[in-house]
């Protein structure tokens, strides 16, 4: 402990900050994309159309049964093969871009389950009320049901996003430079694991702890209004 060398951190903070920025970008992209796709999946799952139901259920169960780290690597290696098959050209994606895509489609499965229970939490009468006002299905969902579902599920959606923020660390498996990946790359070169990994743990803890406290507060507020 005595030779804990802070200079390793100060000398590399810029690189670490770059990594953190990438982690945040992936988190926000996957959150927005994941919630949109997830909501569509939830609507499919709750629709009366059997093939749509099956598709949504299959999608969700598929991604919920496989380890994220395996999906990250598999997509990275297979997506270009698929694109080549479709377009006939070799299209390099790169680890960084591949991760945006993987996290969006992977998290969609989890967000979809949250949105499904959110939609189910809205009383049936609300849908009837929407139709009674002359709304179409789309309008009822968009203007009546989804806003309430979203609002009820906001704390859960945000909690899932904190999990997602932590999970981005797994892109290290494909060599992308997220926050953890940046720390790992510095460790590879400078051989100072104690300093780097400890710093990473502390920073993750501070961010996630603060966010989860905020979510708790939000939850309390929403609970009162309801």
């Amino acid at each position: 402990m005595s030779d804990f060398d802070f200079s390793v951190i100060t000398a590399n903070w810029h690189f670490l900050a770059e990594g953190l920025r990438y982690t945040l970008q992936v988190t926000v992209t996957a959150m927005i994309g994941g919630i949109i796709i997830g909501t569509l999946l939830a609507l499919m799952r709750l629709s009366s159309n059997k093939p749509l139901q099956w598709f949504a259920a299959g999608y969700v169960n598929f991604f919920r049964s496989v380890p994220l780290v395996q999906v990250i690597l598999a997509v990275y290696l297979i997506l270009p093969l698929l694109l080549q098959f479709l377009t006939g050209k070799m299209i390099p994606i790169g680890a960084e871009n591949s991760a945006y895509f993987t996290f969006t489609i992977f998290e969609a499965a989890y967000y979809s389950e949250i949105m499904r229970s959110g939609i189910q939490s809205v009383p049936r009468g609300q849908i009837g009320a929407g139709y009674a006002l002359g709304f179409t299905y789309g309008q009822t969902m968009r203007l009546v049901v989804l806003p309430q579902a979203f609002r009820n599920m906001l704390p859960v959606l945000l909690t899932q996003t904190i999990v997602l923020f932590q999970d981005v660390s797994l892109v290290y498996a494909i060599g992308a430079t997220d926050f953890f990946g940046a720390a790992d790359k510095i460790t590879q070169r400078d051989l100072r694991p104690v300093e780097m990994y400890t710093t990473v743990a502390v920073v993750y803890f501070i961010i996630c702890f603060a966010l989860s406290r905020l979510v708790k507060r939000l939850q309390a507020r929403i609970a009162i209004i309801r």
């Binding site: 904190i162 932590q166 999970d167 660390s169 797994l170 290290y172 953890f180 694991p193 990994y197 400890t198 990473v200 743990a201 993750y204 803890f205 996630c208 702890f209 989860s212």
Partner: peptide, 10 residues
């Protein structure tokens, strides 16, 4: 509040 992989490395 700490990612699993970071905990394992710790």
């Amino acid at each position: 509040n700490i990612p699993l992989i970071v905990q394992l490395f710790l």
